[in-house]
Nucleic acid binder design. Structure first.
Lengths: 259, 259
DNA sequence: CAAATACTTCGGTCAAGACCGTAGTGTTTC
DNA sequence: GAAACACTACGGTCTTGACCGAAGTATTTG
């Protein structure tokens, strides 16, 4: 009846490191098998099995059996948004401990966030689109303008498909940059387009993305982003489009073993 | 470095029933003392003190000392949004266990959600505003139209104040109705207006709101909502504007004692 | 059918942490 | 200054649940 216990139940589920790792691994929208999730969460298959049962029962994960394996994915975008929110809160949390992030530089630069792009690149893209009045965006609401519609049309990004039964355009607060990037159907369409045209590639076993040489060129001409676009510089760093390419393959997988 | 552990830490914090109760109690934006929070969470003051220290350290709560008491409030709207999100997920979670809600009828009808209205009434209001093209709204983005701007002007709702340094208009998925209501500056302004003109009143020790007779009349004329507005009826219920007024004072406070 | 694979169930160990009683510290009231 | 109040620190109890080894159930492969 009271809402406290209800949210506690769900939060406690997410609050276990092993389960949180599983959920994080699914944040990019992929579906993974029980074994794979056991591996990324760093626990034995038996333990993982228990965790996955709980997460499924609670409705956080959706399950598809196929032969002798079981595929799991996040049950709904709402789950992904809660996880996003937790990252944001976790970042802003420990008062002045912000921006101490060492490592994960690849992730900060470009990554997927459920079904769209995130990281410095995504924030810059969002900035440009707003700057050119293709999109109206504040921290919480988004709207595509007529000019924006034709811009995407010319670019060959098909928005009609994506916008059928889905949210059209929304901002998503970037937990590493602390500024919004594009989510929703528009955000997803941009990621699709970028992957399809080899602007970016997935890094194996990670949510990280790397920008290809083609991507550097195309992003520059398409969005007018130069090699080293101006960043908000809250920590003095400047990112280049290809940043993190060389420095880190940075496989995100956890090592198995006891917690 | 990996994001899993980080979100687990925050989620685990929310995942304790006592702490979840505290956070829930603060969802309406109030500031409460340590004692009050101990009471609503149903634990002894010593225990509450420990919980509050953890929540503050983690940056979920902001603390203001005043004399011999300590006032706590949610540290940021982001925290409120995570809590909202958890409620939504908790609702949609247990597969077919939805809409079993007994009790909390007052809450379902009208309540505050951080700083704006939620519940059936808020959803209906949002519906009407959309219907009359005062607001463009989908599940994730919102925009006030020119017509809407003058509508609120005439109504005497001051949007200029609120929109200074704040998100202007955004939808917030209603966890009891599972459809969006208005949040952001516009949502907050509407709640302010409703409270100021005695359309609704706070229920003591609860997030619930009751609609006054004045409110029933004014809401009807202002938004064209009749006594029993059509609901989406996913559970066959129909709510009236004054629904829940008589049936329940339904004080939300928890009884103290062991968990 | 046997072997291998993918996953689950069961049982027992163990550590984390929620809880409160007692005993403090700081602040206001009388 | 004493008493009441609001809150915090410490110490010990006890429950919860995460973990893995061993064994068991489906499903595919040879």
């Amino acid at each position: 009846m009271d809402t406290g216990p209800k949210i506690a139940q769900v939060a406690a589920l997410i609050g276990d490191p092993a389960r949180a790792n599983m959920l994080s691994a699914l944040m990019d929208g992929r579906t993974l098998t029980a074994s794979e999730l056991a591996y990324v969460s760093g626990v034995a298959p038996q333990t993982a099995s228990g965790h996955l049962a709980k997460l499924s029962d609670a409705g956080l994960l959706a399950l598809a059996k196929q032969g002798r394996r079981r595929y799991f994915r996040l049950a709904s975008p709402h789950v992904a948004r809660v996880l996003e929110g937790l990252m944001v809160v976790a970042q802003e949390g420990p008062a002045r401990q912000r921006n101490l992030w060492r490592g994960g530089e690849t992730l900060r630069h470009a990554r997927t966030c459920y079904d769209h792009m995130a990281g410095r690149i995504a924030v810059v893209i969002a900035d440009r689109l707003v700057q050119q009045s293709f999109i109206l965006l504040d921290e919480d609401g988004g709207q595509l303008t007529d000019a924006g519609r034709s811009f995407f049309d010319e670019l060959g990004v098909d928005l009609r498909l994506a916008s059928k039964r889905r949210v059209f355009c929304r901002p998503c607060l970037d937990w590493s940059e602390r500024r919004p990037h594009l989510a929703g159907a528009v955000g997803a369409a941009i990621l699709d387009h970028a992957l399809e045209h080899d602007w970016v590639e997935h890094v194996r076993d990670s949510r990280a993305l790397v920008v290809t040489p083609v991507g550097v060129r195309e992003l520059a001409t398409t969005f007018g982003i130069e090699g080293a676009p101006p960043m908000d510089g809250h920590d003095g760093r400047v990112g280049s489009l290809s940043g993190g390419r060389v420095s880190a393959i940075a496989v995100e997988s956890a090592s198995p073993g006891r917690r």
